[in-house]
Design a binder for these strands. Sequence first.
DNA 1: GCGTGGCCGCGTACGACGTACGGCGTCGTT
DNA 2: AACGACGCCGTACGTCGTACGCGGCCACGC
Lengths: 255, 255
Amino acid sequence: MASERRTTADPARSLALLWRTREPTSRSAGPALSVDRVVRAAIDIADAEGLDALTMRRVAEALGVGTMSVYTYVPGKAELVAVMIDTAYGEMPRPVVEGDWRTRLERVARDNLALYQRHPWMLRAETTRPVLGPHLMAKYEYELSAIVDIGLTDVEVDAVLTLVLGHVKSAARAASEVVDLERETGLTDGQWWQSHAPVLETVMTAGAYPIASRVGTAAGQRHGAAYGPEYAFEFGLQRVLDGISVVVAERAANR
Amino acid sequence: MASERRTTADPARSLALLWRTREPTSRSAGPALSVDRVVRAAIDIADAEGLDALTMRRVAEALGVGTMSVYTYVPGKAELVAVMIDTAYGEMPRPVVEGDWRTRLERVARDNLALYQRHPWMLRAETTRPVLGPHLMAKYEYELSAIVDIGLTDVEVDAVLTLVLGHVKSAARAASEVVDLERETGLTDGQWWQSHAPVLETVMTAGAYPIASRVGTAAGQRHGAAYGPEYAFEFGLQRVLDGISVVVAERAANR
DNA sequence: GCGTGGCCGCGTACGACGTACGGCGTCGTT
DNA sequence: AACGACGCCGTACGTCGTACGCGGCCACGC
């Protein structure tokens, strides 16, 4: 009987894998593969061709081994993805940033955006909560350190970070969708809208959605489309930071 | 040769389906099925058992027909999901809300949160940009109408809505993950952390992540866990609204 | 030198899944 | 009464994740 296909990673198995609980093999001529080689190959595939192209057979092929050999190093696909995510977090920069908290937090946001742009598959892989790996912990530690001292409680600091990262992920997803659409259809965002305009006009009886039409058109004009996501990111980020400033200032006044 | 398995819906096919471009059958003893019956059955399954349980065979079974009969009404699974999403948008309330824009926008946020709580599968289905269906249009129209008159440009109004809805989705996703984890492991969030604490302590050499540990513990204490997501939603929403208020006030002053 | 035990690598096979294709029955129309 | 369209669906194919067990190789103990 083939087992049920789990869609989420087993946290316990992932944890063991992430923190490399297994001691390395002491074989003289070490094994041909390793967890890291498997993960790197998998990330390369996902980066280049997306998450759908990431299959166990494909990973094995890229490594020049049989499909099932991959399972020697990784208990299953879900866990492989978990390590891929943690590995990606590991390659983020963690510079010491000069300036006030807003500058630092803004930098955190932009670094996260860059991460998602480099690895768009993360946006689709992270639908479930990421497993706590060493690099995620390091990232969390670093990002918290940027804002621990702004006068909020620990709980609030955590919520601030969650808010900012959530916004980044939303904006990154929107941007990624535009890119995907372009790659799949070969049309730019604007061209796509134009090609479907006749259908939409037929279907929306004139004046059925007055505000939506006006705003939609305005948005389309303003950024020649395909530029919208960047604007949404910038605008949203500034609003979020403004909102955080309000509490920070409040607290400073009540001190 | 079986066709390639598309993971994203074909926009053109989805549009035709969403707006019911096909004229209804004029058969006397109408057909046993209909697009709506298929969609309703699919939504029921996804609501009850999640997106993974949603298979074409399962939908057919629920309707008491052969698997392939479903394809008479829906061109493919991706398009079925697209209609499911639009249908779900259709059941959202659109009340006329008394009060200022902040009250109205807050209400929009809460209604969207409720939607995601009723249909958690939407959080995983919407990884790709939703196809423009009639109910999505109506929703967009309604939500815009809550904030068109706050003194911002059309482009900004659109960005404000995007920002708020993005936050709601992020928070809903976090909440949904906690629920999933509880259902899968049978443990509450707090219990899960406790059961894995020994492993984590072993692995994080003491003091490796000082801030993260402190903040993490604080957050765990503050909300007895499993309550975290709601706090994150509320805190984030107020920050976002505060941030929007800043621009709104600015514009009002410069008028 | 010779087992021998453990582990790496993998061939085969199974049970999902989405869906192409072609046939069959049942009607409304002529 | 004959026909053509359409609702319905059985079968089959290609793809996926992965269980299972076998073969070969190395380090080690004698």
